[in-house]
């Protein structure tokens, strides 16, 4: 019976709903939003990429060794694990800005997957190139060492 009278009384009370677009709902100022990146501060250790649970950060590398940062807001879970892992304060940070929508043109899923694979490949290619250069350098620097085993073989054959 009490509920009934209360329900009648509700006819004369103000609505409890809020006029949403005019009255903003509560959003904390440290809301977990988009991840920001400062190229000038980054020391390119790629630790953020290593700890990222969904793999939303990847670094590609060109043949000169210059690294580029890629971030996908649709893959990111905004856990800020990259911010905690970063050894350089402020190089990677979390803003309170919510992520926007993705358009079809962006090709945010398949485009990201191919970009991710390409980035890993580009790094492997750079590492292989570096290794090759280092081997070349070692050969040109110490020419005597590479001849030595040949000599030994030759002398062994002579002994026979």
């Amino acid at each position: 019976m009490k509920t009934f009278f209360k329900a009648i009384g509700n006819l004369f009370r103000k609505p409890v709903t809020i006029a949403y677009p005019e009255v903003k709902t509560y959003i904390p100022n440290d809301y977990r939003g988009l991840i920001g990146f400062d190229e000038n501060l980054c020391i390119w250790c790629r630790r953020c990429e290593m700890v990222c649970p969904p793999g939303a950060i990847v670094f590609s590398q060109d043949m000169k060794g210059k690294q580029t940062y890629h971030f996908n807001r649709a893959v990111c879970i905004y856990c800020a694990e990259c911010v905690r892992a970063c050894p350089k304060e402020g190089a990677i940070y979390q803003t309170n800005e919510p992520a926007g929508f993705a358009l079809k043109e962006e090709n945010i899923n398949n485009g990201w997957n191919s970009l991710f694979d390409e980035a890993i490949k580009s790094r492997a290619a750079y590492a292989a190139e570096k290794k090759r250069l280092a081997a070349e350098k070692a050969q040109t620097e110490k020419p005597g060492k590479s001849i030595a085993p040949g000599d030994e073989a030759a002398s062994a054959e002579n002994e026979k």
Partner: peptide, 15 residues
Amino acid sequence: MEMLEAVCGNRIQYD
């Protein structure tokens, strides 16, 4: 829900 958002930064997936 709002308090969880204030504490954790997100309404559902707190991380």
